[in-house]
């Protein structure tokens, strides 16, 4: 009997709304519980983005009286979710021209939320203790000389270039091929795995070559020096298979769901005003990742000590 009731109630639920049901207008079931106004933020997997979200969350909750939900989503699916209204804002985007064209310009479901104030840069890095011993390693032309030192079980006779999460922007496979380097790109598959590996190498002072990006808190724990790649010129990365230049410096952007930007009231205005510096972000990120403070407490510490910065964001 229970089976039938379950089936019947399921069917009832399906039939409750006979009109159209637009999936792009459905919020999370956990939102707005007990009458609170809810903002949903997308948190990407790297800690810098967690710091942005943690501070925004703390201020929205304590200064503006919102309830904040955070969802961890990869970068490209986050654009999807933002367009569907599943999340209200992305706090830190590293540049996705294809998605920007599709959602901001064509479908107009997403609007730009201004700059975050932080400039991001991707590159190849070696640990500083290794660069000090072999100063010429910081030029890509000399990398082949050190391929033997950078060999691991996974790189099969070549030097290992450690890459991270598949969600990150990378041309490394094409770069290695087009610069004719004696290296193999080994994908760690997630940033967590990559960081763990880097720390393990650093503990034993072993040399390594890795794809990495700044601003990133790991630099404070494992000092790293950038390897100079052929300089970036506008459009040199247009064809992903023929890239033979380094990565650009990207001013990181915020994006908001179009409906939220229109009717999100104080929260939307606050998120548009949110703008801080690389140092601010690193301070919070380091507390989260190294001191293992819960993001909420890290955000509280920063908020308590920098009132002049965030007072300007309040609407």
């Amino acid at each position: 009997m229970r089976l039938r009731t379950i089936a019947a109630s399921g069917a009832l639920l399906l039939l409750t709304g006979c009109g159209a049901a637009d999936m792009t207008r459905q919020a999370s079931p956990f939102a707005d519980a007990r009458g609170a106004k809810t903002v949903t933020l997308s948190v990407q997997s790297w800690v810098g983005a967690q710091a942005d979200a943690a501070v925004a969350e703390y201020l929205l909750e304590h200064e503006l009286g919102y309830h904040v939900d955070t969802v961890q989503v990869d970068e490209v699916p986050a654009w999807d979710a933002l367009s569907q209204g599943r999340v209200d804002a992305i706090m830190e985007d590293w540049g996705h021209p294809e998605q920007e064209r599709r959602y901001v310009e064509e479908k107009k479901t997403i609007v730009r939320g201004g700059e975050l104030g932080v400039t991001g840069h991707i590159g190849w890095f070696v640990p500083t203790y290794f660069a000090k011993r072999h100063p010429d390693v910081t030029d890509w032309k000399n990398l082949d000389k050190y391929a033997g030192l950078l060999r691991t079980a996974e790189s099969g006779g070549k030097g290992q270039l450690l890459d991270g999460s598949p969600s990150y922007v990378t041309h490394d496979k094409a770069l290695v091929k087009n610069l004719k380097l004696d290296y193999k790109v080994v994908f760690a598959g997630s940033e967590a795995a990559q960081i763990t590996q880097i720390k393990q190498f650093a503990r034993e002072k072993k040399p390594f070559l890795t794809y990495w990006y700044a601003p990133q808190w790991l630099f404070e724990k494992v000092p790293m020096t950038e390897v100079r790649l052929p300089p970036y010129r506008e459009g040199c990365d247009a064809d992903p298979d023929k890239v033979a230049c380094g990565y650009p410096h990207t001013p990181l952007q915020k994006y908001l769901n179009a409906d939220f930007a229109r009717s999100g009231g104080e929260a939307a205005r606050f998120l548009k005003n949110f703008r801080w510096t690389t140092e601010d972000q690193n301070e919070v990120a380091l507390m989260i990742a190294e001191e293992k403070l819960p993001p909420r407490e890290a955000a509280k510490k920063w908020v308590d000590s920098h009132p002049s910065v965030w007072k300007e964001w309040l609407p």
Binding site: L13, L14, G17, D22, M23, T24, Q26, F30
Partner: peptide, 27 residues
């Protein structure tokens, strides 16, 4: 996804039913 009848009249309702029931249990 946000215009075709298949999504509006079928998958949308499936999704809606899930959201409504999870929310009910949660509350």
């Amino acid at each position: 996804r946000d215009g075709h009848p298949l999504f509006l009249y079928f998958l949308g309702h499936v999704s809606n039913a899930v959201v409504v029931s999870v929310r009910a249990v949660y509350l």
